[in-house]
């Protein structure tokens, strides 16, 4: 998204790019001077660690010390262990459920924001949704704990009207509450911008042709924002799949998700290579999911182009 030059940049003979053109006496050191620190920073503090993570999946632990090697032992041990496979299955199920729930809940909400709210309120709704994306996730999970716990707010209210305490915390329900807290704001935002980007004349044309609103939504709107739906879904999956806080506080790590496995393995001290195998496996799964999301949004584009 950020990588493409602004429209019209390439076809203007007066634009100024290195490689295709240069201004008289323009110092070629300039892009290097600006770009190199960024490049180095991201290599050392982002790419380096991830590459190193892949490297240590092949290392060995000898007498509690990590030592360089090139063995497939760790991969073999982890990938064949039932604990890992169970955690993997659990994590995929949980993240998949969150993805479906988040997308299903976010779609009508985003539709309402984009088409039903007056502009001022629409901007406010977006500003409101941006806040939780960048703040206080861990606190909000803690708040849900307070609300859902056996002595918590909901059961407190229930007790006042004479209902027995409900086991709200510690199961799939509370876990999804936590993960939706994480995913819903961003999913609604992505879909809102998707809806807002739809050409209004398209909708008006369909309505002029006598289409009912529900049919316009199904046949015009949803196909038009398919890339946004794919992005919202992959983002939700990505967040839910890698999350550590909700499984920890909403289910007490039982059963563990892959993130819990990673942290537990690391904190136990000696099994860095195995933790790395789990981490790298998670990354590979996420790459596959992102690729799938790309494919889903691209296929629409191809089909539309063919018409």
């Amino acid at each position: 998204m950020t990588g493409s030059p602004p429209p019209g940049a390439a076809d203007r003979p007066g634009s100024f790019f290195i490689g295709s053109r240069s201004t008289a006496g323009s110092p070629a050191v300039f892009p290097v001077l600006l770009g190199l620190p960024v490049l180095l920073w991201q290599l050392i503090f982002f790419a380096g660690p991830l590459v190193f993570l892949v490297v240590i999946t092949f290392w060995q632990v000898k007498s509690f010390r990590l030592s360089p090697a090139f063995v497939a032992d760790n991969w073999e041990k982890v990938l064949t262990s039932t604990a890992f496979l169970r955690a993997l299955g659990h994590t995929l199920t949980v993240a998949g459920t969150t993805t479906v729930l988040a997308t299903a809940i976010a779609l009508p909400a985003a539709y309402t924001i984009a088409f039903r709210l007056p502009p001022r309120l629409r901007d406010f709704a977006v500003a409101f949704l941006v806040v939780p994306v960048f703040s206080s996730y861990i606190l909000r999970i803690y708040a849900w704990q307070v609300v859902l716990s056996p002595q918590g707010v909901i059961n407190g209210i229930a007790g006042l009207v004479g209902i027995e305490p409900l086991p709200l915390l510690g199961g799939a329900f509370s876990l999804q509450i936590g993960l939706l807290t994480l995913t819903l704001p961003i999913a609604v935002l992505i879909l809102t911008f998707g809806f807002a980007g739809v050409d209004r004349t398209l909708i008006e044309a369909a309505e002029n042709l006598g289409c009912r609103r529900s049919r316009v939504v199904a046949h015009v709107l949803l196909p038009a924002i398919r890339p946004a739906i794919a992005l919202a879904a992959t983002t939700s999956f990505l967040l839910a799949f890698g999350d550590y806080v909700s499984p920890l506080f909403m289910t007490g790590s039982k059963p563990p998700t892959l993130s819990i496995v990673v942290v537990d393995t690391v904190k136990s001290g000696s099994q860095w290579p195995r933790a790395s195998v789990v981490g790298v496996s998670m990354l590979l799964i996420l790459v596959a999911v992102l690729a799938l999301g790309q494919l889903l949004s691209r296929r629409t584009r191809l089909r539309r182009g063919g018409r």
Partner: peptide, 24 residues
């Protein structure tokens, strides 16, 4: 180059944290 700057938020912080700790 652009991807190298853009992508880090997409990597789960659990894995990123572990990798950064190991490397640093």
């Amino acid at each position: 180059f652009v991807l190298l700057v853009a992508i880090p938020p997409a990597v789960p912080v659990t894995i990123l944290g572990m990798a950064m700790l190991a490397f640093l």
